[in-house]
């Protein structure tokens, strides 16, 4: 394990560490936070950092540290679910249409283009407006807007794989599309898929936070990074930590994902941007 990590390079290790810290803190939040994240206390509103409140309090006197620790739980869970489903579905679909390379490919890619051409945020807002802002609705919405993008990327990589001789050999044996996709193509685009997962997750978590910021995600008084920024940005000059706390948490998580993607890409020889070119 140690040697694997070393081989992956420092960039990858820092990335994984940042992700792990964020996930761990979010998981342990209910046990390690000193205050109830939604308990307001009008006597202690808008305080700077003190021994009792390390990151100070917000306008309702809620402890910023406790809210920051808890604030990732929702976004990270939604990110994990949505990214996993979108990447899995997109990868399978991408490999399949790349292998088929016929009219089905044309139709699917046309629909993919059409969905991609509608602004992501508009699509999300419409879905949320239709079905409300429950967690599974948001997950579904993110899956709907990101599956096409994953499909397109994986299809690009899978096309170059499916023209290789071992796929041809499987075709000549008369294997069906299913086994060829699962046994021959998918394992060989797995590197692309992994890097895609890390990048996609970083966008999804930003997207979820932005939705909350706009008032379409988590509902007050729930602790949530995006929501906290929206609530506290008017008091930016008074209690800057109330805004910076959740932002630093979010930014470190996203940087972690980016670093992991870069490190993975370098290690696996997938330059995300250039797969399929040479």
């Amino acid at each position: 394990m140690k040697s694997v990590l070393r081989a992956a390079g420092p960039v990858f290790i820092i990335g994984i560490a940042l992700i792990a810290i964020n996930l761990l803190l979010a998981f342990l939040a209910p046990w390690i936070s000193a205050y109830d994240p939604i308990a307001s206390n009008s006597d202690a509103a808008l305080q700077g950092p003190t021994a009792a409140h390390w990151l100070g309090t917000d306008m309702y006197g809620r402890d910023v540290l406790s809210r920051t620790l808890n604030g990732g739980r929702y976004a990270l869970l939604v990110t994990f679910l949505a990214t996993t489903i979108a990447v899995a579905a997109g990868a399978l679909l991408g490999c399949l249409v790349a292998f088929l390379n016929n009219w089905i490919d044309d139709v699917v890619m046309r629909v993919v283009d059409a969905i991609l051409s509608v602004p992501t945020i508009l699509a999300l807002l419409v879905v949320v407006a239709v079905f409300g802002s429950g967690m599974w609705v948001i997950v579904l919405a993110v899956v709907v807007v990101y599956t096409p993008a994953v499909t397109r990327v994986v299809r690009g990589a899978a096309r170059s794989v499916s023209s290789l001789d071992y796929v041809t050999a499987a075709k000549a044996r008369g294997e069906h599309a299913g086994p060829i996709v699962v046994r021959e193509i998918l394992p060989n685009v797995l590197d692309v898929v992994l890097v895609e997962y890390a990048m996609r997750a970083s966008w999804v978590v930003l997207l979820i936070s932005s939705l909350s910021f706009l008032g379409f995600g988590a509902n007050p008084p729930a602790p949530d990074w995006g929501l906290m920024v929206a609530e506290n940005r008017t008091a930016l000059t008074v209690v800057p930590l109330a805004t910076l706390g959740p932002i630093v948490a979010l930014a470190t998580f996203v940087i972690g994902l980016h670093l992991t993607a870069d490190g993975l890409g370098k290690k696996l020889g997938v330059d995300r941007a250039m797969t399929g070119v040479q």
């Binding site: 991609l116 990327v153 299809r155 990589a157 250039m274 797969t275 070119v277």
Partner: peptide, 8 residues
């Protein structure tokens, strides 16, 4: 292929 990668 490069284009769609780039796009993504």
């Amino acid at each position: 292929a490069a284009g769609s990668q780039a796009a993504a």
